[in-house]
Amino acid sequence: MPGLRLLLGVSLLALVACASAPPAQVSAYTWRQVDRDIAAASRGAASQAREQALAAMERWMDLVYHKTDTAFIPWFSSYWTQRWLGFKVAWYKLDGEGERDETVSRLAQYLQEQYHDLVLEPVARDIAPPQILQQSTQSYVRQLGQQLPGIALRHGVPAAQFDQHLKDIPAIAVPPGASLYQVLHAKPLERLPAYAALVERIGAQPGNALAWSAHPGITQVTRRTSERLVDDLTTGGAASVISSMVGRAAGLAVSIGASVVRAMVQERERPETEAQLRRHLNEAFDEQWLALMRDPERGVMAGIQHLSGQIEAGLGGAGVMPRYRPLVADGQPLWSEP
């Protein structure tokens, strides 16, 4: 019994000693290596997430082009749409007291609304820049999170100390703000208030960086369209005057004849009109697409830029690493690494 009591006493003393032992000390040199590896992991995750965003944006572009060809252009160039647009132009001129620029801008605004309804909205049910913004940002967070446990293990940093270190690294500066630890452990990320505020601020909406109706090519199309429609209405008005002079039956024939002539002229000019409209629409869309890719504050990669910038800046300069290759489209870089 005395031996057993002695053994128990020694065991208890050992447990007390272990419980009171200070945590393992991690040297400043090791923390610098840890930070250097976190910065490298951040850059690698950002590069991969940007590649994924580029692929998604190219898919969005293809769908918009296809919908433009199959929905908007046929709608715009149809005879009855042109008749309807003619009445709208006449109303614009009457309401705007004949001001040409106001008529053109109002017609462009109406066409922009139709473009949104016929093209952008249907495509958005499948994919759109706001979705790509969230997908790319979450991809960055996911890929970075997969690499961090290996960094702690490789440098022998205890899990509790590593977690505390992540809590001291800022990741989102938009109020209420969030640390890297909070971002990595938010399940799902959308419920983190700082992340929701960041996504709302960025927006990544088509038209934020460039007003569709302000594109010079679109303005040219709408100006020519409005002028031609006004001319058509003038011709139609002349036919109505003739109708009242020659009688109902003959006047009906005149009106029908004028409509047939307008329809024939429009059909003959339709291929050229469609080609011109397609070219200018694509030019305007391409400018918006590039703006959404390049804008570090409002584009689809702004979430990646914000988080990676905050994290690497919070590492105290440890993020100065070899640059990853920039994204390139048509020989031009879409993004420059900070």
Rank of each mutant, 00 (worst) to 15 (best):
L6I: 12
L7H: 09
V10H: 09
V10N: 11
S11N: 09
L13F: 07
A14Q: 14
V16I: 09
A21Y: 12
R32Q: 13
R32E: 15
V34C: 04
A45M: 07
A45W: 15
A45N: 10
A46H: 06
Q52V: 14
A55I: 01
W60R: 01
T68C: 02
D69T: 10
A71T: 06
Q82L: 07
G86E: 08
F87E: 13
L94K: 11
E97L: 13
G98E: 13
E99K: 12
E102L: 15
V104T: 01
E121M: 06
P122L: 04
V123E: 02
D126A: 05
I127R: 01
A128W: 12
Q131W: 11
I132W: 10
I132F: 05
Q138Y: 11
S139M: 12
Q143Y: 14
Q147G: 06
L148D: 10
G150A: 14
A152Y: 13
H155P: 09
G156M: 07
P158M: 04
A159M: 07
Q161S: 09
A171Q: 10
V174K: 09
A178G: 10
Q182I: 04
Q182T: 05
A186S: 15
P188W: 13
E190I: 00
R191S: 15
A197L: 06
A197Y: 07
E200W: 04
E200A: 14
E200V: 02
P206S: 09
W212C: 01
Q220C: 01
S226V: 02
L229P: 00
L229V: 02
L229C: 00
L229W: 03
D232H: 13
L233V: 00
T235C: 01
G236V: 06
G237P: 02
A239V: 04
A239C: 11
S244T: 06
M245Y: 10
G247H: 05
G257L: 02
A258K: 04
V260Q: 09
E272T: 07
E272K: 05
R278I: 02
R279G: 00
N282C: 07
E283A: 15
E283M: 12
Q288L: 04
Q288M: 14
L290I: 11
L292A: 01
M293H: 08
R298L: 01
V300R: 04
I304K: 07
Q305R: 14
L307P: 05
G309Q: 03
G319P: 03
V320E: 15
Y324P: 14
Y324L: 02
R325V: 03
L327Q: 09
G331F: 07
Q332A: 10
E337D: 12
P338F: 02
